[in-house]
């Protein structure tokens, strides 16, 4: 994998595998939600992850963040952060180590904002609970800083006195983003952070995320299924399909020269204002990850599929400088 000189990876993910192992009413099921994913996120960049619903994006970033709860298990591979060099995955480090890095080095904006905000505590207290000990200073000073930070996501300081349920979903999500950025961490994982926001606020919030990121030269792993957001925000982009990464590279390169058949479809199918006719959908549905198809997981839906695709997993190959693709049609002879 090529990293530009001077831009060392902050996160190195290698052959990561994470499965859901469930047993309901005596039936064992294993959902292979993340299966052999590898990529780097460098310092001072926003790496985007795209892919349709159920492709494993959330599972991937939960595993990277070490938020593993049964039935989710990290089965193999590694996800190493440069600020935690002695552990090859956050999920393998002891809880006290994880507590030390959380919020200050690594923060996580989850899909669905209620998860982090305590419904019984005013927003002010959530800020104090998470960030005060990292930032320090007097109580008033800290509250003023929280209020100023909220203004950056266009929230009135009076929000500090509100309970989560008194805020609309969009307001809560902006509070969560403010919480995750106030300590200026090295690495932010953001899972669909603006998906619930309207376009105007989304644009503001994305601009804010970008400016905080630039200011801190921090790194962001940014997940959204919204290709418009990826185009506007991210520096590099990875495309997931059915638990695997199928393509990654510089964002303008992916949009300008998509190589994987799935990526080509993803970009061509985007609805735009002005559309009156239905855009071509893709035949079939994404596979059930409890029983993924063998070989290339995209083969049942792929217009270019050939016999090899049904039997052999295509390897992720650097087809063009900095542009990796996992496809037999693109890289003849590269099996995983």
């Amino acid at each position: 994998m090529s990293a530009a000189p001077g831009r060392a990876p902050v996160l190195q993910v290698r052959d990561l595998q994470a499965h859901f192992r469930t047993r309901y009413f005596g039936v064992d099921r294993e959902v292979r939600a993340v299966d052999g994913v590898g990529f780097d996120v460098r310092r001072n960049e926003i790496y985007g992850l795209a892919g349709e619903s159920s492709s494993g994006k959330t599972t991937l970033v939960k595993t990277i963040a070490g938020l593993l709860k049964p039935p989710l298990e990290m089965v193999g591979g590694s996800a190493r952060f440069s600020f935690l060099p002695e552990w090859d995955a956050v999920g393998r480090a002891p809880p006290e180590v994880v507590r030390r890095i959380r919020w200050r080095h690594l923060s996580y904006i989850m899909q669905g904002s209620m998860n982090v905000l305590n419904p019984l505590r005013r927003i002010r207290h959530s800020f104090r609970d998470f960030a005060w000990r990292h930032i320090g200073g007097g109580k008033r000073e800290f509250d003023a800083r929280a209020a100023a930070h909220l203004e950056r996501v266009r929230l009135d300081p009076s929000v500090l006195s509100a309970y989560p349920h008194e805020l609309s979903g969009g307001m809560r999500q902006r509070v969560t983003i403010a919480l995750a950025t106030i300590c200026k961490p090295d690495f932010i994982i953001a899972d669909e952070p603006t998906t619930a926001l309207d376009v105007v606020v989304q644009k503001d919030v994305l601009g804010m995320i970008r400016s905080i990121q630039r200011e801190m030269e921090s790194s962001i792993l940014f997940i959204t299924h919204d290709m418009g957001v990826h185009a506007a925000l991210t520096d590099r982009l990875g495309i997931m399909y059915a638990g695997r990464l199928v393509e990654d590279g510089e964002t303008p390169e992916i949009f300008g020269r998509p190589l994987h058949p799935y990526t080509r479809h993803l970009i061509a199918s985007l609805p735009r204002i002005g559309d009156v006719e239905q855009r071509e959908g893709l035949e079939g549905t994404p596979p059930n990850l409890a029983m993924p198809p063998p070989g290339c997981r995209f083969h049942p839906r792929c217009p270019l599929a050939m016999p090899l695709c049904a039997t052999t997993v295509p390897a992720m190959v650097e087809t063009l400088p900095g542009h990796r693709v996992a496809c037999h049609a693109v890289n003849p002879g590269a099996a995983a």
């Binding site: 970008r210 630039r214 418009g228 506007a232 520096d235 949009f255």
Partner: peptide
């Protein structure tokens, strides 16, 4: 109009990488 102009599409490539007037990006 503001709403309509805020819609991001693949054609908005780089809106926050270059064009968007962010003070930090201008550093």
């Amino acid at each position: 109009r503001q709403l309509r102009d805020a819609v991001l599409t693949p054609d908005s490539a780089g809106a926050f990488r270059a064009r968007h007037p962010l003070k930090a990006a201008a550093t």
